[in-house]
């Protein structure tokens, strides 16, 4: 069942690819605009059908770990990957500095997710210093 779904998704991606080739041939002036919109539609589609369900499975798999860790790890990794993809996309369009900026901001967001855990660790360590 799941394998069939994945094959179907692969087929959809190939269809999208063919569509993009067709756009490049028919309306070369609108190519980047259409590419971007189709890219984001595909991205969100894949997010809802594949990536988020996988994330949930992953979290359930490592449920027994102390609570936030598995969630945080998979969440921050997916965020990092998405940000990388999007900033790459922006870079391909030629706006390199904007790409760097968006990636940087997402990195800060990921770090902020970890603030609580870092505070815990620092508290453990500083309990040794203050006597």
């Amino acid at each position: 069942m799941a394998r069939d779904g994945l094959m179907f998704i692969l087929l959809q991606i190939i269809v999208v690819f063919l569509l993009l080739l067709l756009i490049a041939f028919v309306v070369p002036k609108l190519q980047s605009l259409l590419y971007t919109s189709i890219f984001f539609i595909v991205l969100f589609y894949l997010l809802t059908t594949v990536i988020f369900p996988f994330g949930r499975t992953f979290v359930r798999l490592f449920e027994s770990l102390p609570n936030p860790f598995a969630k945080l790890l998979i969440g921050s990794a997916i965020l990092f990957l998405l940000s990388e993809i999007i900033s790459e996309h922006i870079e391909e369009a030629g706006y390199r500095s904007l790409a760097t900026l968006s990636h940087f901001v997402i990195k800060i967001t990921i770090l902020l997710l970890w603030v609580n855990q870092t505070t815990n660790l620092i508290e453990i360590l500083s309990s040794l210093i203050t006597k």
Binding site: F62, L65, P66, S76, W114, L121
Partner: peptide, 28 residues
């Protein structure tokens, strides 16, 4: 184990997976 899986899925995140694993191990 979890870090192993993450390394397979997100190779570009590898360095940080290691750091986070380190982090978990330090706290625990």
């Amino acid at each position: 184990f979890m870090a192993l899986m993450m390394d397979f899925l997100f190779p570009s995140f590898k360095k940080w997976t290691r750091m986070i694993l380190f982090f978990i191990i330090l706290t625990v």
